[in-house]
Design a protein around this nucleic acid. Sequence first.
DNA 1: GCCAACGTTGGC
DNA 2: GCCAACGTTGGC
Length: 152
Amino acid sequence: MRYWLMKSEPDDCSIDDLAALPNQSVAWYGVRNYQARNFMRDQMGVDDLALFYHSSCAAPGIAGIVRISKKAYPDETQFDPSSRFFDPKASRDNPRWLNVDVQLVRKTRLMALAEMRQLPELATMIVLQKGNRLSITPVDPGHWRFIEARLG
DNA sequence: GCCAACGTTGGC
DNA sequence: GCCAACGTTGGC
């Protein structure tokens, strides 16, 4: 059982969008970074928990908690020529990209990036490191407990 | 829109 | 294997 932080652009899928979906769950498609893919493939298990983070938006920060509801399987969008995530080098025999499914656990108050940066307890979080762009990062249990307590 | 940081591609 | 060029991410 591990903890994660997963970035989503709210213009694409916000915490409220997730809450409105059937089963409040969604395929975390579109990851096109090998390190993030490998996290899903090698380390993510069903019932792992993740912070749902809004990125590339006016108010970046943690917006909710989700759980991994299905382990990694091939990302359909890599096979779809009409998708912006289409990958001509991927095939069904040899898929390159994977996704997991996530399900809403609860929406939280927004814990803004600016607030996170002000908390010395969180200073070593991967997502706060300079230049970090990974869309999926592990969160250590101490950070998880601290954030969860602070989210109320 | 700007720009720093990073990952990927492809020529050599 | 090196590395320049290019594309993307993501905060501001």
